[in-house]
Design a protein around this nucleic acid. Sequence first.
DNA 1: TTCGTAAATTTGTTTAAACATGTTGAAAAT
DNA 2: ATTTTCAACATGTTTAAACAAATTTACGAA
Lengths: 242, 242
Amino acid sequence: MPKAKYDTIYRDLKEKIETESFSYQELLPSEHTLIQEYGCSRNTVRRALAELASDGYVQPMQGKGVRNIFQPITQTSFTVGGIESFLESALRNHQKPRTKVLQFAELETSEKISRRTGFPPGTHLYYLQRLRYLDDVPLILDHNYFLKELMPELTPEIAEHSVYEYLEQTLGFTITTSKRTMTVERVTQVDETYLDMNDYNCMAVITSQTFNADGIQFEYTQSRHRPDHFQFQDVAVRKKPG
Amino acid sequence: MPKAKYDTIYRDLKEKIETESFSYQELLPSEHTLIQEYGCSRNTVRRALAELASDGYVQPMQGKGVRNIFQPITQTSFTVGGIESFLESALRNHQKPRTKVLQFAELETSEKISRRTGFPPGTHLYYLQRLRYLDDVPLILDHNYFLKELMPELTPEIAEHSVYEYLEQTLGFTITTSKRTMTVERVTQVDETYLDMNDYNCMAVITSQTFNADGIQFEYTQSRHRPDHFQFQDVAVRKKPG
DNA sequence: TTCGTAAATTTGTTTAAACATGTTGAAAAT
DNA sequence: ATTTTCAACATGTTTAAACAAATTTACGAA
């Protein structure tokens, strides 16, 4: 669906950088050159470049040019930058995904659950507990809370495949923003029941609140990862002090 | 130094959102209104709004308006979004910071260290090992590699205070991009020597490569956190599939 | 050669304008 | 009363132009 010019240019440059058409530390073509290459205005080129910069792919330098600072990374990472479903992550890393639904229930948020999840008290939610396998090894235990109002027809069958795919493809949902918190917690009885913890007494835990295009939070999830298969990547940009 | 109009507007709106001048789910004033409030062009307002959106503060909705989706979070988090030094984090969380330099050495990168750190082989580096205290409790063990060429006068005294402050204030350095990887690793002998692990057999580990405004990597750091005091926060935005 | 200045080049900020697309609500037609 | 249509309003994309600021290059003077 993204037919915007700046997005096309962004993707094109991104792919060129990833396939090392530009070497590390090399300067990209100047804005003036890119304008002529892509036949568009300066602002459009600059928008594409700005996105690459926020991805940590390039470093713009006033008066000098735009430097490529992309370095290829290990493919084994589980979660990178954007919002990715379990299914998408697995495919990107060439791993075989499988999901087993352990629990599928409905509940109404209490005060306590409200504070933890960010849903207002009295909201009707689905509660799911799902075990995630990669290459037939159980590695992740998910606790999902979904806003029932926005997906009244959710079923265990859908949950076993991909809720995100159902929301986006079937319901025409647009998922936009996810606020995530990473912590390390002690293993629980439930963790040990389903995962081979191999002497580890901790879990890598990601909790996330996810919003749709209307700014409505439709999901709260706690995702508990076996530590030895967990990796999370991030690019941060320092804002000028002031 | 940031006297840019869009940055002023961004900060002003951000503060208004944080102090709850707008309630959760409320619409912000329209672009048209903001243009008149701030006396600037539409593009300038839009730039400020775009930054707020990438911070996960607001959700723009075509045809409808811009919705406030900010929810105040627990103050206990150690690392949030941008690039922050240990000192800055501690102050933001109202904790008393202290640093003990355990090692201060110089070395030249071998092939092996090069692959791990991202510095070219043969580069001259400082190697530091630092123990970080918060409110007099040792919680973090840092292994830093700094590019000697860019800070030939680095001393243990500086390292005990704040290297970032030295780079920015004294050397006029601009720190821009940091690529970080979060993992969970087993405790080592060194960890146990300096930190009270209290039965945990894992550490939360953040490795980071940090670049200056010229796109030169000047730092590689492995930061090992005691799990019970570690929290990392992040806002992700889903890109349209295509 | 060396140094310094000016010109050319490059990115950064801001304004203005036009059109596209999605939403809402009121007026008009049924 | 209900539905349809359309105008008004919201954000999204693109172009154009001007000026600012930092860097590099070229050139001329010493």
